[in-house]
């Protein structure tokens, strides 16, 4: 294979999304130079479109920002106070929806047990998924994969010793081990282009349902709050422990559908990489973290359970929509070129 160094591309920052209710409208208004939000988050649906989009937009200021929005608004006291009220509603709902506990070993055991015949998006795509469904799945996943490893990078300075060194080794791998063209976010972008999708950061924000936004919001929430560092590690563990078998099913799906090398390659890479990451997360990150501070166990378990809950909610949403022959996106994708 011959490759040439890509010319540097100046990318436009993402456009602000469309509001989905009073909370997201208030945040967007503030970002456009308006006054502090007059609405409150109390009583809002914690997993609903409006609250999740409002929270997502608040967090994006810490990642890439938006076109036409002042970068300094990242630290606007009005915006941070509003974000805090959104986070409180979301976090309380998550804590109320999971069983909790502090048995890390039992949580890990349930995550790494494969149930044959299990239902789920990757199982469906492997068996009988259609090309349009595969494209939708990739568009849905782009909210995370185009910033793959970024939310987890926030936790690095909050860890120490073996756990820190091990987490950085996994992050290093996610970031292409020093090679920009091999960053997992870049490999995902290459797959999007191969599938006729836009690889621009934020291109599918308006199309992303609340279930997608909630998953990424939980990573940002746990990443940005030091008090939730254990939960962030638990969330990270869920991604790394469940990725290999799911990725193997997506390799099979892509091959069955006759999709291209970037698509097969992205998931094949994750089969092997995450088999390593699983071991590093279990023995290199979680074990020393909990050994050093046993109080972390309950936080790690919470992070695992919350991440699993949000992943299940997304899966149920997608399978319900596809089961009725409709798009799982807020707005249907244009047909493949």
């Amino acid at each position: 294979m011959t490759t040439t160094a890509p010319a540097p591309v100046r990318r436009a920052r993402p456009a602000l999304p469309r509001a989905r209710g009073p909370l997201s409208a208030a945040v967007l208004d503030l970002l456009r130079g308006g006054a502090a939000p007059a609405v409150g988050a109390t009583g809002a649906d914690p997993f609903g479109e409006d609250l999740q989009l409002a929270l997502y937009v608040c967090y994006e200021l810490h990642y890439r920002g938006f076109a036409g929005v002042d970068d300094e608004l990242e630290w606007s006291p009005e915006l941070l106070a509003f974000r805090r009220s959104l986070e409180s509603v979301f976090l309380a709902a998550l804590r109320g929806a999971v069983p909790g506990g502090d048995d890390v070993a039992a949580e890990i055991a349930s995550l790494v047990t494969e149930v044959p015949g299990e239902r789920g998006v990757s199982h469906h795509l492997r068996r009988r998924g259609e090309p349009w469904q595969f494209r939708e799945y990739i568009a849905l996943r782009s909210a995370y994969h185009l910033k793959e490893a970024d939310p987890q990078a926030w936790v690095i300075p909050r860890l120490d010793g073996h756990a820190k060194a091990a987490l950085v080794s996994v992050e290093h791998d996610e970031y292409g081990a020093g090679r920009g063209e091999l960053m997992h976010a870049r490999l995902f972008g290459d797959m999007m282009l191969e599938l006729g999708l836009s690889d621009e950061y934020g291109a599918y924000l308006d199309a992303s349902p609340a279930q997608v936004l909630a998953e990424v919001n939980f990573m940002s929430l746990a990443g940005l709050h030091r008090s939730l560092r254990g939960a962030l590690v638990g969330q990270f563990a869920v991604v790394e422990l469940t990725s290999s078998p799911g990725s193997a099913r997506l390799v099979a799906a892509a091959q069955r559908l006759g999709l291209g090398p970037a698509t097969v390659g992205f998931y094949a890479e994750h089969v092997e990489a995450d088999a390593v990451h699983e071991q590093v997360v279990r023995h290199g990150i979680i074990a020393p973290l909990v050994a050093e501070d046993p109080a972390m166990a309950a936080d790690v378990v919470f992070g695992m359970q919350a991440a699993t809950l949000l992943d299940d909610r997304l899966g149920e949403h997608v399978m319900a929509a596809w089961g009725e022959g409709r798009s799982a996106l807020v707005r249907e994708l244009p047909p493949a070129p």
Partner: peptide
């Protein structure tokens, strides 16, 4: 390794 060593639950 592709994680095939994992326990498989019978259903």
């Amino acid at each position: 390794c592709d994680t095939s060593h994992r326990t498989r639950k019978k259903t």
